[in-house]
């Protein structure tokens, strides 16, 4: 099995006030976007700890998106700016540990930005495709293990 056969997974942490609503709107609008994204709702991107991003990669995520409100319009004033700082820090940690920093990305989407949101997911899916699955990705073996008796 070549590494490119592996199923990839993107974890998207979405702020309930913007990106989560945008993802919901994308559904209402029936926009097509990569199906390997798994959305985790957060009250604000400012809630997210660096540990969560690292945990996702440790478990085998191939890409992590942190989607918060547009800068200046955070529901909690500055949660998204704090998240940006943490994401930038986590990217350094990723690079130091040998993973590509591009696998982790902070994006800003408004609640009406359904197309923008799906665009960001698509972009991350392309990044993951270009970089190949993460060395920590166990997804394909997981599926096979489940099939075997």
């Amino acid at each position: 099995m070549s590494s490119s056969d592996k199923e990839t997974t993107i974890v998207a942490f979405c702020c309930i006030y913007c990106a989560y609503a945008a993802a919901d709107l994308a559904g209402s609008m029936r926009l097509q976007y990569p199906s390997n994204v798994r959305i985790i709702r957060t009250p604000c991107t400012g809630r997210l700890e660096v540990e969560y991003f690292l945990r996702a990669f440790e478990n085998g995520a191939d890409g992590v998106l942190v989607a918060g409100c547009e800068e200046g319009s955070c529901h909690f004033k500055e949660g998204n700016l704090i998240a940006k700082r943490r994401v930038n820090y986590a990217r350094k940690l990723l690079a130091e540990s040998g993973l590509e920093a591009e696998r982790l990305k902070m994006v800003n989407v408004s609640a009406a930005g359904a197309r923008l949101f799906t665009g960001h997911v698509r972009e991350m899916a392309e990044t993951v495709q270009r970089l190949g699955p993460s060395p920590l990705n166990r997804a394909k073996t997981r599926v096979q293990q489940e099939i075997k008796p």
Partner: peptide, 27 residues
């Protein structure tokens, strides 16, 4: 918002309904 919970260096703060262990278990 949970900014304090994420920032607390001693992990002494939790945001109700969005606790660390809930995020981690989901992952």
């Amino acid at each position: 918002c949970g900014i304090c919970a994420a920032e607390c260096p001693a992990c002494a703060i939790q945001l109700n309904h969005f606790e660390s262990r809930q995020f981690k278990d989901m992952l």
